[in-house]
Computed example of a mutant assay.
Amino acid sequence: MSVEKNLKNRNMMKFFIVMAMLLGSSVASAENKQITSPDGKLVVTVSDVDGRPSYSVSYDNVLFLKPSPLGMIANIGDFSSGMSLEKNVSTNKIDETYELASIKQSKVRYVANEAVFSFTQQGKTIYDVIFRISNNDVAFKYKMYPQGEALSCVIRKEATGFAFPDGTTTFLCPQSKPMGGFARTSPS
């Protein structure tokens, strides 16, 4: 009986070692992809650690946003977990000039880098997260892909978030009460 118990313990130990190796390799397989601003100081890192899409932002090697969640839960599925970041990232340089008569600087030149990060679930492309990064700002949007026979996609819960580093401070300004001021347009 002692030999049988010893074999059982060995098999259990082998099982746990194999499982630990598999779990470790799945975490290690998460890749970080980066895009930088034209001057190289602003850096966005996109990842899929444990199947959860995330991004972080640093400026001049100082962390500005800790890894923060990306994704959403829709009527056609949960796209906040079980996701994989595709290896290929398409990039594009943006250099646009536009004019607006009613702003402080009427002629504006916008220079930025754009990157498209594609996320898949069970081998199907679900959405792209398209980041645009200039020397002073970061913006991103989602591009959803059709899934099966669904004619529409209703977002039930937004998973996107902002995780600020400990000690972050902010400045808040009091706002006017709604529906006040001239023609009840306040705050404008």
Rank of each mutant, 00 (worst) to 15 (best):
A74G: 10
A74T: 14
A150H: 14
V57Y: 14
F15Q: 11
T170L: 12
L22R: 04
Y110L: 13
S81W: 00
G123S: 11
D166V: 05
T168N: 12
I94S: 07
Y59R: 15
D60I: 00
I126F: 02
S90A: 10
S58W: 02
T91H: 04
L23H: 12
F64S: 07
Y127P: 13
N61G: 06
S102Y: 01
F140L: 15
A101Q: 05
V108F: 04
S58F: 02
A74D: 00
K157L: 05
S37H: 13
V154I: 06
D78T: 01
N136C: 04
E31A: 14
L42F: 15
F131D: 07
Y142K: 07
E99A: 06
R184Q: 14
L23V: 10
N113K: 11
G148R: 00
L100A: 10
V62T: 14
I35E: 09
R10S: 12
P187T: 08
E114C: 06
K124A: 14
V111N: 01
S47I: 03
F182Q: 13
S176N: 07
S29C: 07
S80I: 01
G51Q: 05
E158P: 01
S134Q: 00
I17W: 09
L22V: 12
F164Q: 03
L63Q: 13
P69C: 11
S186P: 14
R10N: 15
F119R: 01
F162D: 08
V108W: 01
G24W: 01
F182H: 11
K124Y: 08
N113H: 15
A20K: 04
P53H: 02
A20E: 05
S29W: 02
A28Y: 10
G24I: 13
V111K: 07
M1G: 13
I103H: 10
S25P: 08
K93N: 13
K143L: 05
K66Q: 13
V3S: 09
Y110D: 05
N92A: 08
I126T: 06
D48T: 07
I126K: 00
A139R: 12
L70R: 08
I35C: 09
E31V: 11
S56H: 02
T160G: 06
A150D: 14
A101N: 14
A112W: 04
E31K: 09
A30P: 01
A159R: 11
L151C: 03
R52I: 12
G181S: 09
I130Q: 03
L63E: 06
I94N: 10
Q175P: 00
K41S: 08
M12I: 12
Y110S: 04
V46S: 07
G180R: 02
Q122H: 05
T170R: 05
S54G: 15
G51E: 05
T160E: 01
S188A: 09
N75R: 08
S152A: 12
Q175H: 07
K177Q: 12
P146C: 03
M72Q: 08
S37F: 12
C173F: 09
K141R: 07
K107T: 15
F119V: 08
